[in-house]
Amino acid sequence: MLNPAARHNLAVAILHGVHIRIAGSAGYYCGGLGDGASIEIEGSAGWGLAESMLSGTVVVHGNAGSGAAAALRNGSVIVHGDAAARLGVSMKGGEVIVAGNCGYMAGFMAQKGTLIVCGDAGDAFADSMYATVCYVGGKIASLGTDAVLSALDPAEIERLEASLSAHLPPAVRRSKPAAADFKKVIAGRKLWNFDKREWRTWQEAL
């Protein structure tokens, strides 16, 4: 797709394993609701990148707007630049990697999957999360409600490094912190007020 000039709703709900390369920037909701497509955006992406994507891969060479990977179900969303506010909010699975920084309230109410930010994270990071695991290579402006820091074990460091090496260009990966230096952020579970009898149902729903 040549120079779509940041038009909205590009490559939405593609349900086949095709590869789509966008030479230029995409507007809102690019790659949303997809199931199996591989989408590469050479420029920037607007709000709602890969929102509710079921599976597949979306790679943005530039920056991403607010709400990237919101409600992501599965697959990978890779941003080589920065992501704006509300990255990965309510994500329910999959993997999100941002090589740069992310903005306000990333990971809010995220339920499952992995959220990796190589640069700095904005305020209220990982607020009110469920079982998503976050990794931040830079500074965290402030943790959100119930977000807590946790130690990385060796196997986890290995998995993190493998993921970063697999998804980021070598030059970009080399410019980012070593996997062992990332901070891990998870839910402190103080807000998990549901009845434990529902635990299995809840786990299955995720």
Binding site: A5, A6, S25, G62, S66, G81, A84, G103
Partner: peptide, 17 residues
């Protein structure tokens, strides 16, 4: 929206939110 820039200024430049 970025669409306002791409329509008015062709060329290669980086846009961020």
């Amino acid at each position: 929206e970025e669409i306002a820039m791409r329509g008015a200024f062709p060329g290669d430049y980086i846009v961020r939110e």
